[in-house]
Design a protein around this nucleic acid. Sequence first.
DNA 1: AGATACAGACCGGCGGTCTGTATTATTTTA
DNA 2: TAAAATAATACAGACCGCCGGTCTGTATCT
Lengths: 211, 211
Amino acid sequence: MARNKHPEQTVQRILDTASQLFFQQGYGKTTLQDIIDATRLSKGAIYHHFASKEAILIAVVDRIGDFNSAVLAEIRDKKGPTGAEKLRDLFRTSMKLSFQGKILHMLPFLIENPKFMALQMQSILGEAAPDYVLPILREGIADGSIRADHPEQLSEVLLILSDLWLHPILRPSTPDQVRARCAFFNQFTQQYGFALLDDDLVDAMVEFCHS
Amino acid sequence: MARNKHPEQTVQRILDTASQLFFQQGYGKTTLQDIIDATRLSKGAIYHHFASKEAILIAVVDRIGDFNSAVLAEIRDKKGPTGAEKLRDLFRTSMKLSFQGKILHMLPFLIENPKFMALQMQSILGEAAPDYVLPILREGIADGSIRADHPEQLSEVLLILSDLWLHPILRPSTPDQVRARCAFFNQFTQQYGFALLDDDLVDAMVEFCHS
DNA sequence: AGATACAGACCGGCGGTCTGTATTATTTTA
DNA sequence: TAAAATAATACAGACCGCCGGTCTGTATCT
């Protein structure tokens, strides 16, 4: 095969395969030969579409990030719900998507690269917090469903805690531990007039730990 | 040179050199040849004392961790101060030591390895929180200087926030941002009856960002 | 006739191994 | 008990397989 009529399919095949391998065995342990074997392409084909192994990683992360952003933006821009309701929706959706491996969230943690650890923090603190959580917080303050003196800081803390502490993907946890953390988190947000985690979501988190 | 009388010195030389190189250029970009050149040892010498490159990293991290633990334990076991005072002392000391690069804290972030990201979280959530912060919290609850219903969760949240959100090493920040975060953090801890960050420490954090 | 989409031989450098050697520690022997 | 024999240690450095990346060649499209 030379001069494929639909090179976009080849790119997507590489991305799909690489994304799966990076998730399964990490970026560092995934060799180019693995990708070659899995895609049944040649080294030349891959390096024709991507400048380096790292470029593949960036493309994978970007693709998930785009999907992520679209989902979050849709929730943020809904008409109707209060700020508190939107926030609940956002955290719920985000958590559930990450359970299906469909979200940026924890990817960089599974991938061993300092740039991407920084990129993860940047994604949380430089994009998710100011672009999605903060507007909703402000909206909630305006409509009275949320009380907060310092929404900028609160938006960051909410994300840090939910992504790095609450999220059960990072460490094996017993159901009791998950529930205790969720209760503490809800108690924390309660002082701002809202609770983020309903019983359904807590149950989903518990179940995710078991599987 | 063969059969050195003081092999311990050789081990320390490797550890010192590697630690410096890992800090400067990261683990991944530091090649064994770099260590060989800097130590003026041979590959055989290094692999005689360490099983792998990763084993050197583990030894480096362990050595810093041991130093770290010793410092924290000393504060925890002091007689005299209240729980709240000890907690302030612990966060202050820990923060100041990390400014000097003398503490485990952020090392794994600078080193690109998934195991060591996990190891960092483990060090925070599996050791620092239960072994040092939690006992002090309990002590503070007993002596009345701290009010907390769920000290286990609180100990983890305090460390997560201070290490991953408050700590200015992770992202460049303006003095205003640092001060705003510190104020938010103090307001957060205030509901448990204590404030962790005094003006001195906040100033030190601001200054650290500038240099 | 280019330009594009591959194929695959090839390369330098990496982490890691293996064998060799000098020095020290330990045991044996007279 | 002291010297000789043996074993164990602390290196040195050639060597190896594999990895990411390059380069040249070729078939198929526009």
